[in-house]
Computed example of a mutant assay.
Amino acid sequence: MIPPGVILAGGLARRMGGGDKGRLMLGGQSLLSHVITRLRPQVSALALNANGDPARFADLGLPVLPDGVADHPGPLAGVLAGLDWAAVQGASHIVTAAADTPFFPPDLVNRLTRAAEMQGAQIALAATPGPHKVLRHPTFGLWPVALRDDLREALAGGLRKVVLWTDRHGAASAMFPATPFDPFFNVNTPDDLAVAEGMVP
């Protein structure tokens, strides 16, 4: 069963000076547009996790899911919002992608699903080989709706770091090649945006 997808755009973009980082232009279209174009063919439905006035995203035609946890606790709050939305849809899992990562692989969902199945895990995170260790990309993951109450409890208890929670549940890693560049390169700063311009096909 193909899972729905959730784009995580609930951060504060401090290193970009605030605002909606996904609206920054790259190669003639917004970062969000790049992400939507890559993720939509891979999922059964698509939603956006974002905080503030949802009307500013009306042009995208996507459901906008705010964090259900106060004070911007990070990506896990967006994952939880997505899981709560997916539960209403009757879905068993969601796949998440970050709104500031425009070059992620077109087979993201297939590889995450396969890694979870092969490693007998409920959660799978994207990963790439690094010079000294495997680098995990925890905003790109496959998440089971069945763990949403566990995640809600963890967030209420103050947990914020994604991998601390995923490690509790024995998350699988789905490996992706990092050549000719890391497909999970994300745009955090104006310099990153300049680098990304040189990576646009």
Rank of each mutant, 00 (worst) to 15 (best):
A156R: 01
L8C: 12
A194I: 13
R40Y: 01
T166Y: 10
M1S: 15
L65I: 04
G28K: 11
A121K: 09
A146F: 00
G10M: 04
M118G: 12
P41M: 11
A47G: 02
F184N: 05
R56H: 07
D100H: 01
Q29I: 03
L31A: 02
A77F: 03
L8T: 09
R160N: 08
A127E: 13
L151P: 02
R160I: 15
A116C: 05
S33C: 08
N188Y: 09
G22Q: 04
G52C: 11
D192A: 12
A115Y: 10
A196S: 04
H137P: 10
L151M: 12
P102A: 01
A115K: 06
P180T: 06
A98C: 08
P102M: 00
P102Y: 00
H93A: 00
R152S: 12
H72D: 14
R168T: 11
W165F: 15
V88A: 07
P190V: 15
G82N: 08
P41S: 02
P102H: 02
L135G: 01
A97L: 01
R15K: 15
P138T: 14
L24W: 04
T166H: 02
V69D: 07
R111V: 14
D107T: 10
G28E: 05
M175T: 11
F176I: 06
R38Q: 04
G170F: 04
G130D: 07
I123H: 00
L83G: 03
W85K: 07
S92H: 00
G11E: 14
G68Y: 03
A174M: 07
T128E: 05
D84L: 13
G61Y: 13
W85A: 03
D167G: 13
I36R: 03
A194P: 01
V95M: 01
A124T: 10
A124E: 01
L39W: 04
L193H: 03
A116N: 08
A81P: 01
L48W: 05
G170M: 12
A115H: 08
N51V: 15
V69H: 08
R56S: 13
A154Y: 07
A115Q: 04
L159S: 13
V162N: 09
T37F: 05
R114P: 00
R38I: 04
G18M: 12
A91P: 00
G90N: 07
Q119I: 07
P102N: 01
G130L: 02
I7K: 02
P183C: 06
D182T: 12
P63E: 13
R14P: 11
A45E: 14
R136K: 06
P3C: 07
P138Y: 14
S173R: 14
T166N: 09
L46C: 00
Q119K: 08
R152N: 14
A172P: 05
Q29H: 09
L164Y: 15
T96L: 00
D20T: 06
T179H: 08
L193P: 03
D71L: 14
D150H: 06
A77R: 09
K133Y: 03
T113R: 00
W85M: 10
L32P: 11
D150E: 09
A172K: 05
D107R: 01
W85G: 06
R168F: 07
T166P: 08
L164H: 13
P106R: 11
G18R: 06
P177H: 03
M175I: 15
A174W: 10
R111G: 06
A91L: 03
K161Q: 13
